[in-house]
Design a protein around this nucleic acid. Structure first.
Length: 497
RNA sequence: GGACCCGUAGCUCAGUAGGUAGAGCAGGAGACUUUUAAUCUCCUUGUCGCAGGUUCGAAUCCUGCCGGGUUCACCA
């Protein structure tokens, strides 16, 4: 048994037909994978070159290349469309404009939908007004041995969309656009941070202790050292070491790995932006985070109003709402004495509110269940939730006038947590204590090396982490995190062999 | 891991009072020199996810497995 990602393909007949065409081409001394490195125009560039109103013989000659996605043969003339990274361009190919025999013997007979070809010729406009290349020559640069999905319905099978993403990208322009937007989001983020003197760094993915978050890590084995390593679950502890090392403003955009379930909002590997700014705090992070997301939205979407698939408009403009965790809980439970109740009463009341709460949970966890299930989903418009109970974040500073809470915000938009930010804890003694409070049976080992770093002195700092995949969901209206990740985690297919 | 739903041609899908399968597109042959899901004629295509079971007979009913989706659990 071998594992593989691509499902078996039984299209032997179609495959055989194409393979035969390929062999025939080779037998006649034609290369079905011809090199073609000459400069060319993208479909969009070519269309822009068209001179409106000028006669055909004064139109510029262009050279385009792309995947053959429309192939309409009408006797001695054909219309085809090539798809490239910018879109599609139509080409008009006639028998009389190609070399003798070329059209009937090769063009009509040896090309298939899915092949990649280059076409050269002058632009003209068809009688229905479409700017088109009148082919003077064409070159097959890659024969496709497998057929494309159906041209009208396209590719809708979820499994194939994820397992054979290239087909999705060929067939579904929405998908192509979404991933382009993802790339642009990340680019816009970098621009924003670079402009504010942040340095981009890279920290280890393989770690002896996976810290910085409470999540189960993936375990791997380091042969040379003969010990188990963990895939990182957060970027935090290494970035803070850099603050100790004198970097004032650092960020990293990178993959983190959490060995947990998959869902519409969770992929085991996902991309985080984490940034740390010395001499700032969570208030500074608020300003930065709001500015960052607004910059990205404007740059990539071109608007601060984001319409969700259900029609609700998320308004990213202006100053965002700020709300205390406790106030939200009191409001949602309708119980002004919520925090005075003992554990058993909270449990009872939470259940009365329709929340399925595990009886083993700690006091603060019950409250947090209320927050996550009752409140978070209602926070559609951007909201900074502040004054969060200290038990929930061991790496943040305690609020000066309320020792039960920490200087933190959780930014919620679109009913999900998008970005938490802290006034980072830099007192190594308190930090050690808070780690010890938290290190239980199923929590990670304490990162002693990190504490040693803190003991050398870390400047006060604000830190922020942002789940990029979830931001993309928000900005593009994607239905699932899988639609924002090119190759989401899937179970490998098992196959005899 | 639990619950529910889904898996039929290369693609998108029809097909249940159980009688071993259809359409469109794609593919093959032909006609057609401005098409827009081009059109027209003819033709081909399937271990009905896999493995068992019930039955004279299973795409259809039952069980298990594989894969996917939704949701819950888990989740800083």
């Amino acid at each position: 048994m071998t594992d593989q990602t691509t499902p078996p393909d039984n299209s032997h007949d179609l495959y055989a037909v194409r393979l035969q065409k390929l062999e025939e081409l080779c037998a006649e001394g034609r290369n079905p994978f011809a090199a073609n490195c000459e400069q060319r125009h993208t479909s969009e560039e070519a269309i822009r070159l068209y001179k409106e109103g000028a006669p055909d013989e004064e139109q510029p000659r262009v050279k385009v290349a792309g995947r053959l996605v429309v192939f309409r043969v009408m006797g001695k003339a054909s219309f085809i469309k090539l798809q490239d990274r910018d879109g599609q361009i139509q080409c008009y190919v006639t028998r009389d404009e190609l070399p003798e025999g070329e059209y009937n013997t090769y063009f009509k007979k040896k090309l298939d939908l899915g092949d990649i070809i280059g076409v050269e010729g002058r632009l003209f406009k068809t009688k229905t007004g479409e700017i088109t290349v009148r082919a003077e020559s064409y070159t097959l640069v890659s024969k496709s041995l497998r057929p494309l999905p159906e041209k009208w319905s396209g590719l809708k099978n979820d499994d194939k969309i994820y397992r054979q993403r290239y087909l999705d990208l060929i067939m579904n322009q929405d998908s192509r656009r979404r991933f382009k937007q993802r790339a642009n989001v990340i680019r816009a983020m970098r621009e924003y941070l670079w402009a504010r003197d942040f340095t981009e760094v890279e920290t280890p993915v393989l770690q002896g202790v996976a810290g910085g978050a409470a999540a189960r890590p993936f375990i791997t084995h380091f042969n040379a050292l003969d010990c188990d390593f963990y895939m990182r679950i957060a970027l935090e502890l290494y970035l803070k070491r850099l603050l100790v090392g004198g970097e004032d403003r650092v960020f990293e955009i990178g993959r983190v790995f959490r060995n947990e379930g998959l869902s519409r909002r969770h992929n085991p590997e996902f991309t985080m932006l984490e940034l740390y700014q010395a001499y700032s705090d969570f208030r500074g992070m608020m300003e930065l985070t709001q500015g960052l997301i607004q910059h990205v939205a404007e740059k990539v979407i071109g608007s601060l109003d984001i319409e969700r698939p259900d029609g609700t408009v998320i308004q990213l403009g202006g100053e965002w709402r700020e709300a205390k965790y406790k106030d939200l809980v009191l409001e949602a439970t309708g119980d002004p004495d919520w925090f005075s109740h003992d554990r058993a009463t909270k449990l009872e009341k939470a259940r009365a509110l329709g929340i399925d709460v595990d009886g083993e949970l700690e006091d603060y966890e019950i409250t947090n269940n209320v927050f996550e299930k009752l409140i978070e989903p209602t926070l559609i418009q951007p909201t900074f939730v502040t004054h969060i109970p200290r038990e929930l974040c061991p790496l943040a500073k305690i609020t000066q006038d309320d020792e039960t809470t920490i200087d933190v915000f959780e930014l919620c938009i679109n009913g999900q947590e998008i970005a938490p930010a802290y006034s980072e804890q830099n007192d190594p003694i308190i930090q050690r204590k808070m780690f010890e409070e938290q290190v239980g049976e199923d929590v990670q080992d304490m990162d002693g090396d990190f504490l040693t770093a803190l003991e050398h002195g870390m400047p006060p700092a604000g830190g922020m982490g942002l789940g990029i995949d979830r931001l993309i969901i928000l900005l593009t209206g994607a239905e699932s995190i899988r639609d924002t990740i090119l190759f989401p985690s899937l179970k490998p297919l098992k196959q005899e062999g």
